[in-house]
Write a protein that binds this DNA or RNA. Sequence first.
DNA 1: AATGAATGAGAGTTCATTCAT
DNA 2: TATGAATGAACTCTCATTCAT
Lengths: 219, 219, 219, 219
Amino acid sequence: MKAAEREASSAGAAEAGAGAGAARANILAAARAEFAQKGLTGARVNQIALRAGVNKQLLYYYFGNKEQLYCTALETVYAEIRALERGLELDQSPPEQAMAGLVGFSFDYLSQHPDFIGLLNHENAQGAPHVRASASIRAMNSPLIERIAATLRRGVRSKVFRKGIDPVELYISIAGMSYFFFSNRLTLASIFARDLGRTPAVQSYRRHVVAMALAGLRP
Amino acid sequence: MKAAEREASSAGAAEAGAGAGAARANILAAARAEFAQKGLTGARVNQIALRAGVNKQLLYYYFGNKEQLYCTALETVYAEIRALERGLELDQSPPEQAMAGLVGFSFDYLSQHPDFIGLLNHENAQGAPHVRASASIRAMNSPLIERIAATLRRGVRSKVFRKGIDPVELYISIAGMSYFFFSNRLTLASIFARDLGRTPAVQSYRRHVVAMALAGLRP
Amino acid sequence: MKAAEREASSAGAAEAGAGAGAARANILAAARAEFAQKGLTGARVNQIALRAGVNKQLLYYYFGNKEQLYCTALETVYAEIRALERGLELDQSPPEQAMAGLVGFSFDYLSQHPDFIGLLNHENAQGAPHVRASASIRAMNSPLIERIAATLRRGVRSKVFRKGIDPVELYISIAGMSYFFFSNRLTLASIFARDLGRTPAVQSYRRHVVAMALAGLRP
Amino acid sequence: MKAAEREASSAGAAEAGAGAGAARANILAAARAEFAQKGLTGARVNQIALRAGVNKQLLYYYFGNKEQLYCTALETVYAEIRALERGLELDQSPPEQAMAGLVGFSFDYLSQHPDFIGLLNHENAQGAPHVRASASIRAMNSPLIERIAATLRRGVRSKVFRKGIDPVELYISIAGMSYFFFSNRLTLASIFARDLGRTPAVQSYRRHVVAMALAGLRP
DNA sequence: AATGAATGAGAGTTCATTCAT
DNA sequence: TATGAATGAACTCTCATTCAT
């Protein structure tokens, strides 16, 4: 049984902690944190093993090598956000509320998942080679775009949104307002000499983002 | 004469491509490109020397070590954008046009300076330690915030902008829409299966960003 | 029951390819091939298990460790050639024919048993520590020397061979002409730009060797 | 300057010992000994550095990696024997003396250069991949074959040699008698319970080989 | 008789940096 | 101002072997 097979065979057993399959799950969790902080090359295999509380060589036993472990971690975080996105039901509320919900969800998710931001940051910084190479990530295409498009149509029909907005561009601009805040928080805080990490600052910016997005859609 | 002094003494001579001080300027330019692509730890001192066409040792002669070279590169790109920002004259035009100009400037600058994005991305990905440590970068605080605040006040007075908008938050949201597009372009393109690098796609998104920002400010 | 005992207890069952003891025989055959190609240190325990189609652990169960497995393989190939040598009946034919038969046998055996050459090559390359340490191999001393001596005496008596030839030296020179051809075939072929693997080339060299040996014995 | 260039540039400076280029020459000498004893995979980079009295990393500086160092060592020993072969002047003496000189030279060279045998043994044991890949070794084709052919023709003309002997086959059989003795000396000594390393044993076998070769050529 | 999980020791290689000139 | 030689520390990965069932 090769590393690749082992990886597949226990894909569903990632419940972590203790018991059968615990070691593998612990490694993956440790890898995620380490890679998010330091990127693929900056991360240390030793450190991951240490965090996971296992022997270093077990990483190789389960994941083959550092890069494959990185890819698995990357695919895992994408799978998680896609699963949550799938749960969003934008068509249950009026267009404006639906859109406010979407913006808030996006903001809150990034706020609560610094690992996701860290991984994406590093991945983009080096040209996104692994995301582009991963068939699995490409296959998990976001369900959001269609739903955003439908919501936009509903809003245009009821005259609360202006016409001609491209759903992908809208998604990027909405996500960008939140992503930039969290990903660049430390440089921004330093430059503006303002602590952007305290809860009030975060909540205030959240309101700003929602307000900008909704006002930006108006006719 | 120590490395630090040498660095200062030829600070003004970085514009050269040949002649006295050419080597130093070449190293700095090479470093900027290399660090932007691969970050502080991913960059290779050898590679920088190669790109600059000089002996590796010279790099230590001029900049002390890898990290100081990195800091110098970082400070250089910040100095450049601050210089341009200083040239922006928002108070010459009506509030809406001024704001449109600002959004466009921000978008265009990022579009034309991928090295700036690369450096910031890597820097933020690792927790922005160098930006935070650099007195020089902190000192070059952006003149923009005050001007944005003034423009907002003018707009509120003339009833074209709504009240209660924080200039720092506005700056972050505006910059974020552009930054995210360029910094995450490759993952986004892969996920949405849409080429975001072609000129029409960039121009279209530029219009979207300007429109969102202006509409977002309306009362 | 320790590994050593298990080894002894199933020593006679190595002929099987399936059924009881099949696993052990398969491992031994796989080991022989792997060690012949790569030597003791170059061989991979994993690879042997793979070739044998068994779990890696089984190999330790049956043979104790890699080195003992190697020794067993080495002793096996020696046992095989000794068994065949025992069958050679040099005293049935006239001295010259007997000697021609011996040279041909030696040549043909090496031609058909590349594994034997491979194992010996690696073993000698590292100083023959295992052959020297193996009581079993030393005990299986070749019956050939006595028979060569007898044949030489017969030939001298009948004046077809010259006097004063040492049987061990004769054996070494005869074996050497064949052994070198097969063991160094690839370097020789490369250097002389001549394919020494084709059947005609092998047959031609066989005739040459027999001719040289017989002529070399003449008075 | 890359490792490859450094290798070329100091190719002639292998005088070893101390002074400029000493380190490189020491490494090469140490590598030769280590590789001859243990082969490419069995050799330890650490051990080579230790034997050479230099820092381990200097190997990489000068030779790129372990395998390239191995190839250089291999090419060096081939260059040495080719240089000596070039000095052999077979056409100055009567055919039989010339041939005796050749056999003796071949025997003595192998006797005095165990490293050459060790390297060849290991190389052949793994399928001679490096000799076959080395353009440089293939280019240094032996001058011997032509001279052997000429000597054979002279001998046939003066009726001291029989007709129809192929010079390449003759070379292989002559070299084989000597090579096998030295390369397999330890297994042979063990099996025949006779010390083949003492000077008298070596000298005796030398006489045997010369006698066999000369007698073998007679009509 | 057979297996999956886990480990310790050590290998080759990379890399920033310093020495000496 | 510029360079070739040399080094120590660290890193990823491999491999034989053992544990537990």
